[in-house]
Design a protein around this nucleic acid. Sequence first.
DNA 1: GCGTAACCGAGACGGTACGTCCCGTCTTGAT
DNA 2: ATCAAGACGGGACGTACCGTCTCGGTTACGC
Lengths: 202, 202, 202, 202
Amino acid sequence: MSESPIPPVSLRGRPRSQRAERAILEATTQLLEEGGFVALTMEEVALRAGVGKATIYRRWPTKGMLAFDAFLAQFLARQPLPDTGTLRGDLLAALRAWIRTVNGTVTGRTLVGLIAEVQRDPALADVWSDRFVRPVRDQHRVMIERGVDRGEIPPGADPDIALDLLFGSAYHRLLQSHLPLSDRFAQVVVDTVVSGMAGGPR
Amino acid sequence: MSESPIPPVSLRGRPRSQRAERAILEATTQLLEEGGFVALTMEEVALRAGVGKATIYRRWPTKGMLAFDAFLAQFLARQPLPDTGTLRGDLLAALRAWIRTVNGTVTGRTLVGLIAEVQRDPALADVWSDRFVRPVRDQHRVMIERGVDRGEIPPGADPDIALDLLFGSAYHRLLQSHLPLSDRFAQVVVDTVVSGMAGGPR
Amino acid sequence: MSESPIPPVSLRGRPRSQRAERAILEATTQLLEEGGFVALTMEEVALRAGVGKATIYRRWPTKGMLAFDAFLAQFLARQPLPDTGTLRGDLLAALRAWIRTVNGTVTGRTLVGLIAEVQRDPALADVWSDRFVRPVRDQHRVMIERGVDRGEIPPGADPDIALDLLFGSAYHRLLQSHLPLSDRFAQVVVDTVVSGMAGGPR
Amino acid sequence: MSESPIPPVSLRGRPRSQRAERAILEATTQLLEEGGFVALTMEEVALRAGVGKATIYRRWPTKGMLAFDAFLAQFLARQPLPDTGTLRGDLLAALRAWIRTVNGTVTGRTLVGLIAEVQRDPALADVWSDRFVRPVRDQHRVMIERGVDRGEIPPGADPDIALDLLFGSAYHRLLQSHLPLSDRFAQVVVDTVVSGMAGGPR
DNA sequence: GCGTAACCGAGACGGTACGTCCCGTCTTGAT
DNA sequence: ATCAAGACGGGACGTACCGTCTCGGTTACGC
């Protein structure tokens, strides 16, 4: 699943302990569950994992990187690429899966914490783009392209804006908490976007 | 604009110094400009404002609250309530104003930092809701309601979801930085949402 | 007993409140009882006395001065000038009175705290000399002089060194707590000093 | 001379830096010289020693303990155990050495500050007893015992009271500053005490 | 089968910022 | 001019973590 983010400098010498790596990620997940990104301190991770702090820093350069790896495994495992035969069906399935993954969950809280961290740590921002945003969007974009192929929306439609509308509005409710991420919300959002894209350049 | 966040408990005793309050907010703004939310330390604010730390804590219980007050004044001053005569015109004007305010600006970076901070500080979350999210949405919702009155979109349309689509997608690009907050983006988003809401229950 | 240490600057305007003065000294005594000189803070005195801090500073320039006034009243009331007819009797009575006053009492602990404070506050040191050390020594020296008059010790004896031996050893046990201020201690000290002074220049 | 006051809990991990320890004690001594116990702040010690505050607290739990260690090294190095062949000679040599060490010196001022500190910090009081008062008295008591062995004073004489008279009177002049710690003072005190002890139960 | 290089847990290191406490002064409106 | 109240600028406190470093000890590869 999640492999060593920083590979050993050399192949000589004592190899990295897999046990330590597992223990670190488990401790990280546990701390994220207990108190979110704020409660995640390297000191406490080391303590709980029974590991020296240097052993953590040897693998993950920053707290953000560590949390990212713990988060990503949990997140990706829950994002299917639906193939229901209709654009509406695909988008609704994907949006519902996303909501299920983040709404009221540790994964959701971690996602929010990481979004914040990404703003201040440029190195994390790169990793965030390359290993989270881009892959997830690439996967989701497939649904739009299939809709175009099926003629459900015109070829001129901008798939990126479609994704921004769909998931941006969902991220918005996750981050601002002003209104619930209900199933009705998912349905109306999908309907409105599909309808808007279809009839866009009417 | 920005009033005393925590009013004095009593009317007796020496009144709070307005000079100190101004100096604190100015130092805060300056630090936010220089290094964003991360670089904002109470210690440095006190130093630059020529103020004891206790004088800050007397008014703002946390760094988040302080940054919020400094942010809010700057943000609200730039969000007009457009009245162009058409739904499309109003929404486009509002979205463009928002983008202008946050895209590549200190205000935008502070907004992001605060969104993160809000997730971890429940007291700040309340203030964030009451004094930022709700007022801004209430103002924006007026545009949708005028569109309904003019018959541009049907009465059944959910104005909150319309706002989530419009601004959620914009917040998404601000926070994930995967694609630019271009003017074309604003136009397509507005067109798609207006069209989607109009033809929704066709 | 203890009068206003700093008289009003002028006789015009509102006169100083005697109620405030009493309340301050009572609060001071109470705090000295509870936690000694360390626990004595101007803030807490003002709070308990129901008095503004400025009202205290108008009368006592420092914490040491305030504690000194609260201490002196209690101390002096308990130091008699014995007149038993013999040098030994007088000295023993005086030493016993001193021990009774300070051994295990708040007055004793305050005395120690003040001795420390005196070292760092030159203004307090002056007051300490003029209003505590000198008067008490002058009173005690009378006993020695009566002993000389009675022929119990030779005229060449240095009364100051006699007092230093008597009370210095007692202060020593009070401050170092290495051995108790027992009555036997008092007796042996008096006997040794009287005998030493008598036979000094044999 | 002065050993690590709080030994590491465990032998594992990075060992305590001797360089840091030396630097801390030097900075402490320097600050005590400049402004006495009052001017001694942990913050300034850390700054001058080029050390984090935690590094100080790891070894010395309080300011008093730190000052004590810095003081003790200086003090003990200057207290000889005289052996002149007569009680009077020994006591005079010891008292003169003590006066030389504390009269008008940094060591003397620190001694006074510590005596005050001892009254308020029970943990320091224990250390003060065990590592200062007791050892010094034990050393001094030897002189008395040799006097008894030589028949200069009777076996019934209480050596502790003899020490209290000798050094108590000297501490008294140090702390109250009412009269100087002159050499005449030392001579008369020693003569009086020796004579008093000798002729006590005449 | 032996040296050695990289690892391991532990914990100390210099440093930054925190939020609190108290100092002695100052500023109100009200006697 | 003084009162109670309480805010002011300032200094130091003791704590929490940061990311780095230094120990003695442990693998496991390549000579």
